[in-house]
Each structure stands twice: as structure tokens, then as C-alpha cells.
Nucleic acid binder design. Structure first.
Lengths: 350, 350
DNA sequence: GTTTAGCACTCGTTTAGATAGAGTGCTAAC
DNA sequence: GTTAGCACTCTATCTAAACGAGTGCTAAAC
């Protein structure tokens, strides 16, 4: 096995040209094509020799003897790590993105939804987004509201204007006055705190403090807990699922079905994305690098977004291994920057 | 053109046999197949004659000269209206349905979601459901809650335990006391009423009545309106989208893409279903009978569900024209009955 | 030593023609 | 009215041949 450093300048140029061409055409690329279409000033024979080397090193492969070469996962990896030149987005693409993001939406979920949508239409692949975990934002308000004699509604408003609520059934009746006292007690003790740091006082303590039946307090706290738990779950959004079908690698119906079925299982996709959130910054998973056996012909480009220095969610795009990495990466980076800015505005106090 | 009444007993039997067979095999059915596989006691030649008649009358067609016959839309229509024998569900299917529906979910949306899911797995087609319009249920509670100096949260709880909320920004600061008065005023005036009958009092009137700045009242009422509007919108749920791909009529990738794209446009599907909600009871739209050009090879079986006598939502299944109507219809009827019963429990006062 | 032209060879793809088979309509007999 | 028989039609499948893109190797040129 030869070291990557030993890839000569020329080999790298040839590899890049080959991958660029393959990304465009989806057809195995021959030596003649490379020497003709792209001005390297080399004959096809020379390129043939170099390609034989590249194949031996594992960067490219031959589908069969008399076909051109196709990049391997290792080839793509090298391409993404060293050869890619970041594309600048077209002016109208930038405009599209900006106008979509800068609509001054007041809900963070809507913002993320929109961002995911735009990134899928611009790249032409499938995009997904994980709405933010709100556990790192502040709790703005807690309120307990009576619905009828035996049911109350617990509501919290988090930073980002996201509202979570939960209806709980009490085992004994409760007066409006009691509820009010409980409500303002919780409001006073909890609002303004970072959600994940919140320690809910014990039901007994509260009960003594404000003279409300402990059973009732217990139930309400349970509802509150559900609300707080709700801030941990983030929703998955998908856009442009059918974009996959535009690419020849999905011309096999069986494969299409497999992938679409996989995509409709939100839990799997969530797990897949969450796992990439550990490292921050943009990440590219090429082919078999991702965990899912069924998606070995796909690549995943993901990035976390956040507020200040804390990542709260992630989004990314899914496409065939032969994807236009340059374009995808540049679009993602740009959108991520905008999201970070906007979410800062929404999630932190204005 | 011959009248439908003139279809002889024997022609009807042949038509039914043909459609039954075609539904199973998806292959054009020949005269020999009919005479052999199914005991009509007639030779293929006789059946050929009858089939020629049926073709002339428009119930069946020939894809090409030397192929068997295939039911036309008209044929399916006659089949559904007159020939179908309602299938009884298998015992384990009934069990599946019952245990899914009778989980005693407390939110109507979750119930509908589950029902839609189960109907898609049982039939093997794609199912969709429109969550109920809640405008005909009572408003249980209205509450106005202060989030910070300049923002308040308006919350309503409807019958069925569905909570809608809206955050509004005030143009002037507001005291907690004012909010409280406004909140209890609205609660007193509006709660207990059927939502669609609610007439919101004018801001001026309320302002005079409880001595709160009219600008503030105005803003809050706007939020309230958003909440009430929210009860009119029903959500669309889809299940088993990829089931479509199991059927040979969707072996063409282009068609698959078209249909999937159509399905991902929720507004179009909503409109499609809503239009069938006008008539109550189970409805079957066969082939070109539906409005959407792209879905001319599909059939739609829909039914409204409701509480008591008022329909509040709809659900249904989408499959190829060659679908197993008997099975679908029996499953749908059964589930509809269960939903009606359950939703009555959830939506009306207990 | 590197590059290139030339050539034989491989192997998948396309094309055309032949074949098989399913199904029909019609006629004549039952 | 029903059925057996037969000629005919048309599609789907199979086969073989031609095609062509691309390679590796060798020997000559730079």
C-alpha cells in the first residue's frame, strides 16, 4: 500500500478530473475522455498508466475489464479532504437562501424547516434537519391552568418561543385559587433558568410552602416533567425525498423502496444524524462510512448548528456517493452561518 | 350502448370472475383462464363470446389483439357497486385493529394517526387521514398568560384535549393584573361554547368592560383568533407510502416519482380528500373519477368519520385501480365504526 | 527515463431475426 | 345456445452477431 503523500501532483490532478467527470456523468470515465475533455496535456496512454497506479492504490476501480474507472470510497474521501475546491454559490442561489432564511420567523422550528427545504431544492438532493434540543435555552414561563374540575393544563414557554404543554388529570378536585398559588410559585422558582439545570422541588416541599394538597402538586409536577422532557426531543424534518429518484444510482426499484422505507423511519434517521452531532463542524460520511448497511451507496453531509458555542441541532443532506460535494458543502456552510446568526436572535433574549 | 340492467346473470358472473382474477394477478385474463380456474361450467369459446359483448359494452378492454381482457374503469365501477361481496376480516386482523384503536388514547390526533397506520398495514396500500376539524367541539378553556413584559401567550383547549396556542407581541407594556382580568373575562364569556359559533366581542367593548388598554386587548384577540383558526385546519397524515411500490403498476420509475411527489404535497392531498367529505359514508373513486390527472391509474376509497351525526374528519386509502376493493372496504368500514365510537368518547364531555 | 502511438484483446451493449406462446375471432358441428 | 377446432395476431423471449468503448502491453519517439 502506498502512502497518500506519494500521490504525485499529476496523479492528484488526474484523480480530481476523473471524479469531477464521474460526478457529472455517472458513467465510468476512460483515459481518452480525460485526456480529451480536460486540458492536462497528456495522451490517453500516459493517463492509462497513471490510472493503473491509482487503481492499484485503491482510489479507483473498474466495474469490468473493458470499462472506464469509477472512484472508490477511498477516492472520494481523498477528493473531499484534499482536492475539492469550494464552489461559490451562484448569485441567485444566495439570494434564494437569504430571502428564505431572513424572513424573520419567530419560531425556531419554522426557521429550521425552511432552511432544510431550501438546501434540498438548491442541491437537488434529500435534506433533513433536526430541530433544536431546547434544554440549553432558558425557561421563560411556567403556567398551570385549570381546564375543568379535575384537569389542568401545564404550559411552558422556552427560549425560541416554543410552547410545550401537557394535560394532566388530578385525582381530587382543586380550587382555582390553589392552582393560582401553585402556578405563581413555579413561575417564580423556575422561570429564567436554563432548562437542563432545572431541579424541580419536591412535591412535599411545595405542598407545605403554599398549602396545597400534595397529591395535586404531585400530578402537576408530573405534567411539568412531561413538558420539560418535551424540550429534549427534537423533531426530524425531511425535504426532497423524491429528489433521490432523479439520480441513476436509484434506477433500481428495489433499492428505491429500501431507501424510502428507511427514510420513513424517523427514529433510524434521527439516530444516524445524532451520531454525527458529536463532533461539531461539517462532516462528510462517504459510502460505507455510515453505519447503515442499506445506504452504502449514499453519502451524508451533516453539520450541527447552534447558538454561540453550543450546538443544539443538526441538519444535512443525503445523496448518492457520487454527489456534487463541492456544491453541497458550500451551500451547507453558507446556510449554517445564517442559521447560527438567526437562531441566536430567536433563542437568546432580545 | 346497452343498459346496465341488460347485463345477464352470466355476464355478471364472468365479469366478476375476471376482475377477481385480475386483482390477484395483475395480468390480462384470457377466456381459457376463466373457464378453467373458476367453475362456471362453460367452455372458453362461450366465454369468449360473452367477453366480446362485455368489451363492446365498455366493461373490459384489450391491451392488444392477442392479450386477455382487463377491466375498464366502468367495469370496476359496476364491480364495486353490484358485484362485490364484503369480505369478513380475518380474526387476527380484527384483533390487530381493535388492540390498536382501543389503546384509550386521550388525544384525538393520536387516535387518527394510529388508525391510519393500521389500515395501511392491513390493506397493504397507502393510507391517509385528515385529523378532525375541531370547530364543532366546545371550547373548554381560554387563558391569557404573560411571557414577559411585552409578550403574552394565548391558549385554548378544545374538546378532545387539543391545545392550540399563539404568542403575541404587545405594543405597550402590560401589568399582570390586567392580563388576569382579561383572561378571566374571556374565559367566562367564551368557554363552553361551540367553537364555530363563537363571536368574539369587540376590543372596544371588552376594554370598557374591564378597563384595560384597547390596544392590548386588540393584540390578544388577534392571538385568540389565530388559535381558533387553528381548530379549522386539520393535519394530513400519511402511512405506507412505499406500499405503492409493491404493485406492478408502479414499476415505472417515472410514474413512481410523479405519484410520490404528488403525495408529498400535503395541500393537494388535503384538497382531494376534503372534496370527498361532502357526501358522508364510504366513497370509492375509481381511476379517472378523481380530479388529479396524475393519479388516473389509482383508486381512492375514503370515508368521513365523526362524532354523533357531524363529520369532523376523513380518512382513506390510495392504491392502484386494480385494488382489492372487497378487503379495503370491509377494513375501512370496520375501522370507521371504531373511530366513531372512540372519538365520541374523546371529543364529547365525559 | 518518460511519453506516446499502435494494436490485439476483453467484455458489456445493442441490434436483428427467429421462436414460442397466449389469446382471439370465426366457422362449423353438436 | 354451446363447443371444438383452426387460422391468425401480436408480444415476449431467446439467440447470435456486430459493435464499440476501453484496456494493457510493446516498441518507438522525445
Amino acid at each position: 500500500m502506498v502512502w497518500e503523500d506519494e500521490l504525485s501532483e499529476r496523479k492528484m490532478r488526474i484523480l480530481k478530473t476523473l471524479i469531477d467527470d464521474y460526478i457529472q456523468t455517472a458513467q465510468p470515465v476512460g483515459s481518452r475522455t480525460i485526456s480529451k475533455k480536460h486540458e492536462l496535456g497528456l495522451s490517453s496512454a500516459t493517463i492509462r498508466n497513471e490510472m493503473a497506479d491509482l487503481e492499484e492504490m485503491g482510489y479507483i476501480t473498474q466495474p469490468h475489464t473493458s470499462a472506464g474507472r469509477v472512484p472508490s470510497d477511498k477516492g472520494y474521501r481523498f477528493y473531499v479532504d484534499h482536492l475539492i475546491q469550494v464552489e461559490t454559490l451562484a448569485r441567485d442561489e444566495i439570494k434564494k437562501i437569504r430571502s428564505a432564511i431572513e424572513l424573520r420567523l419567530n419560531e425556531i422550528d419554522a426557521l429550521i424547516n425552511r432552511a432544510s427545504d431550501i438546501v434540498s431544492t438548491i442541491t437537488g438532493y434529500t435534506s433533513f434537519a433536526l430541530t433544536p434540543m431546547l434544554t440549553k435555552t432558558v425557561l421563560r414561563t411556567v403556567q398551570v391552568v385549570q381546564v375543568d374540575e379535575k384537569r389542568v393544563l401545564v404550559i411552558i414557554v422556552t427560549g425560541g418561543g416554543v410552547v410545550k404543554n401537557s394535560i394532566v388529570r388530578l385525582n381530587t378536585e382543586c380550587t382555582a385559587d390553589n392552582m393560582m398559588r401553585l402556578s405563581s410559585f413555579l413561575e417564580e422558582k423556575l422561570s429564567g433558568k436554563i432548562i437542563e439545570n432545572i431541579q424541580i422541588p419536591s412535591a412535599d416541599f411545595i405542598s407545605r410552602e403554599i398549602k396545597v394538597d400534595p397529591g395535586i402538586v404531585e400530578c402537576v409536577l408530573e405534567g411539568l416533567n412531561v413538558c420539560l422532557k418535551g424540550t429534549e426531543q427534537s423533531d426530524l424534518m425531511l425535504h426532497g425525498t423524491t429528489n433521490l429518484l432523479n439520480h441513476p444510482e436509484f434506477s433500481d426499484l428495489l433499492k428505491v423502496k429500501e431507501v424510502l422505507e428507511l427514510l420513513s423511519d424517523k427514529d433510524i434517521i434521527k439516530a444516524l444524524i445524532s451520531s454525527t452531532m458529536i463532533k461539531s463542524g461539517l462532516q462528510v460520511q462517504i459510502g460505507k462510512e455510515n453505519q447503515l448497511g442499506l445506504m452504502q451507496d449514499c453519502s451524508l453531509v451533516t453539520t450541527a448548528y447552534g447558538v454561540g458555542n453550543t450546538d443544539v441541532g443538526a441538519f444535512g443532506i443525503l445523496g448518492p456517493t457520487r454527489m456534487s460535494y463541492a456544491k453541497v458543502i458550500s451551500a451547507m456552510k453558507y446556510i449554517q452561518k445564517l442559521i447560527n446568526r438567526e437562531s441566536l436572535r430567536i433563542l437568546s433574549e432580545e
